[in-house]
Design a protein around this nucleic acid. Structure first.
Lengths: 236, 236
DNA sequence: ATCTATCTAGATCTAAAGGTTTAGATTGAC
DNA sequence: GTCAATCTAAACCTTTAGATCTAGATAGAT
């Protein structure tokens, strides 16, 4: 791995099972002074060994590969622990695909239908260590992202079906300790009350949460986002 | 909810405890034909009731408020279930703050130091239902996002410190039932073994996970991503 | 002033959980 | 063939956990 870094060109590997398309991209990039395509790969396995060998600066990864899907390919590249940055490339602006690609570490995402200037622009940005997402895709990403987070939270939402809302402050405190695996005796000590009082509280908690034992109570609490609620409470 | 939408102006509420700053923004926005600031709010509580009453199209929310922090404010707005879209506004480009704001549903994020043209641009984008994040902040967001996801995964990773790896298949099965709140008797029935056998397994589990009771075992399992593992196992 | 909710705590009981030891049966490894 | 790991299960015991009933103290509401 010799490195003669005097204004070395940014080295790119193109991964696309469509040879014509890969060649097109290659020529397009080679027109630029700052970039050189050092290899093409027609499938993910070849790509992985090439990346391991040459450690390119950037990989342009087609997401519609026959054998292994693009997402898996990207996460395999991430596992190699090389400095290579991946730009995903597809024909569709599927929000889920964009989200998952960015989630596992893609530094950019562009559509094949986009102008070639945009491809070069993406390379420029990513080569500088930035992330590149065209505005259209960025919007899609955030829509998906926010829905995703909303669903995560929905389990924890404050209203209607959440039996945690019927708990008193003291009961919440007790439940908080239960969710840390503390025993009756432990809770009693921490709250400076007697063990029988703790038992009373715990029994009331069971009634309100409609469960039979502490394990179920803890599971209910976790599923309904009790931990989040706790953090808020402490912050206030 | 009457809607007489004949090119009605986009209605904006500005939330900022600094009166001068809020006024500045107000005037700036009112210069535009398409927007009108219908109210200012100096604190979050006032803002919330104004938003509930007027249901503006956009809220410009300063994130550095004295009483309640901006993140809480935004999530309170989201809870109102109005169509209002929030653009966050701060002096700092703190990645964590940007990430959390977008996570809970902000549709845009801009810095006070940015040119006023950018503010209008943000309004335009958000008014159209898009998400607006300046490139600089977008990069910050993605850096944070990708690190965040990496950490999430680390908790569930298969290697080293995870005591779950020492469990035998049978013990994993038993633990799986414990994490559903099943009792000894229940586990015995489901696995067609005697209750004492279950106890033996559970005791071994406690030893291996270095815990004292089922609640702690369940909590350990959940924290170490045992549920994910289960899903995989069922899928196979 | 009375009523209701909440927090406290006692007594008493049963059921469940957990600890320890021992041991038979099976399987795969060396 | 022996060894180690695993799954099974008994006996015996101690400790928690959970259920129920009763009841005093306090605070807020009507």
């Amino acid at each position: 791995m010799r490195r003669a870094d005097f204004q070395r060109k940014t080295r790119v590997i193109v991964v696309d099972d469509n040879y014509d398309h890969a060649s097109g991209i290659r020529e397009l990039i080679n027109l630029e002074n700052d970039y050189e395509v050092i290899a093409n790969a027609g499938n993910v396995n070849v790509a992985l060994s090439l990346i391991k060998k040459y450690q390119p600066d950037i990989v342009l990864m087609d997401m519609n590969m026959p054998d292994i899907d693009g997402i898996t390919a990207i996460s395999e590249i991430e596992k190699l622990n090389v400095k290579t940055r991946v730009i995903a490339l597809t024909g569709y602006d599927d929000a889920d695909l964009i989200f998952r690609a960015m989630k596992i570490g893609a530094k950019g995402y562009i559509l094949k239908t986009m102008a070639s200037a945009q491809l070069i622009h993406a390379l420029d940005e990513v080569a500088q260590g930035k992330v590149y997402l065209p505005n259209v895709l960025c919007s899609k990403f955030f829509d998906y992202f926010q829905n995703y987070e909303k669903n995560e939270k929905q389990n924890a939402k404050e209203d209607e079906e959440n039996l945690l809302n019927y708990l008193t402050n003291r009961e919440e405190e007790v439940l908080g300790l239960l969710t840390q695996g503390v025993t009756y005796k432990g809770v009693a000590k921490k709250l400076f009350i007697s063990e029988t009082t703790v038992k009373t509280h715990v029994n009331n908690i069971f009634q309100k949460l409609q469960v039979n034992d502490r394990t179920q109570a803890v599971l209910y609490a976790i599923n309904k986002g009790f931990m989040n609620r706790q953090r808020v409470k402490i912050a206030v």
